[in-house]
Design a protein around this nucleic acid. Structure first.
Lengths: 203, 203
DNA sequence: CTTTTCATTCTTGTATACAAGAAACTTGAT
DNA sequence: ATCAAGTTTCTTGTATACAAGAATGAAAAG
């Protein structure tokens, strides 16, 4: 994958090189590369090839801002549309999150956290919105994951989750929206950590 | 194009057929088709081919809802970030819109309307958000355009534009957001018109 | 010694040939 | 007559061959 640090920013994706690396012909490699280019992970320059395009700090912040706003929309819509079953599932997921925090199980937390957000997207009652959120979430996944390694972040994140669920239970869309906005937003320490990890990824 | 009514929903895109139609080989046709599939205009089923996927009424309403929310975010962010020059440009665009309305020039109005929204996206100060908005806007373009043919819609739309600009001038993000939300939202007559046009597109 | 131009080489883009899986049709049996 | 199984045909997916444009290096001129 591009995130593994296997590919640096600006690096050219050589078709023949990748072809022999995966022991296939150029054709499927080209198709795969074009998919990358279309999803924004690489930039295609006609007759010149496609180049890996790691998002810079500015673009990352922008993406997180959009993610926060999209999730806020989900929350606002979900506040009036969410089902009781889904609310129960959010609670259950949150409890499993809590257990993971107690067990210092970062990966477990990560998994349940994913689930939490997926449920939220689904409960927006708008499957197109759900799709778009999932797409961006996936794109930000590696950067999001890094944040969880911050000291004390797990516990803090848990509290934010609970605030979100509480707002949803009250049916207060604006409260839920602002709660998730600050949950996702990149700011302060998180930003610095993000910058640091970016530097690391560039090496 | 897919919108021209050339391709009906569910129709298979035959590679060889398109290849000889455009007098090229299958390879570039395949690449083009894959691009369509990735942008959501077609669905690819492995070993079965790709099929045109016109959005149904439900999906269209969902997309318009997301568009409304995204533009609302743009407006809210723009309210604090917009430049005086951009505000002036919005005013100018709006006046040209007005002239087009007086001249019954639907195409002219359409063009200036595009500009209006483009400026708004830009002034969110978030180029990623700008990109995403433009993408969705382009996708909804044919359906949006149909709405403008509704009687009295041009004048009404104009008023909404002015309300948006006014809110931006006041720096009132929430007001601007809700103004643009109702501007873009699909409801009432607009919905029925949308449904009718969908039926027409399906024939 | 530097710069410009030409030639060679390398890479992308396109065409064609081949393989594998799916669909359709035929043939046989119940 | 209907249904099932096998075969044929058609379509997608992959490999290879070819063409065209870009980059690099060498050679010649200023």
């Amino acid at each position: 994958m591009i995130f593994d640090g296997t590919f640096a920013d600006g690096e050219r994706l050589d078709e023949v090189q990748l072809a022999e690396k995966f022991a296939v012909s150029r054709t499927p490699v080209r198709e795969a590369i074009q998919r990358l280019a279309l999803s924004g992970l690489a930039e295609q320059i006609p007759r010149r090839g496609v180049f890996v395009r790691q998002p810079g700090p500015v673009e990352l912040i922008e993406m997180f801002e959009v993610m926060a706003e999209l999730e806020a929309v989900c929350a606002r819509l979900a506040a009036t549309r969410i089902s009781d079953a889904a609310l129960a599932e959010l609670h259950a997921t949150n409890e499993r999150c809590n257990a993971a925090v107690s067990a210092q199980d970062a990966d477990g937390y990560y998994h349940e956290n994913e689930k939490f957000h997926a449920i939220l997207y689904r409960q927006s009652g708008n499957s197109f919105l759900e799709q778009e959120c999932s797409r961006l979430h996936k794109r930000l996944q590696p950067f999001r994951r890094m944040q969880l390694r911050l000291r004390g972040r797990l516990k803090q994140s848990m509290g934010e989750h609970e605030a979100i669920v509480a707002a949803l239970e009250e049916g207060d869309g604006e409260k839920a929206a602002s709660a998730i906005r600050s949950h996702v937003a990149v700011q302060g320490e998180k930003f610095h950590h993000l910058m640091a990890s970016l530097k690391h990824a560039a090496e």
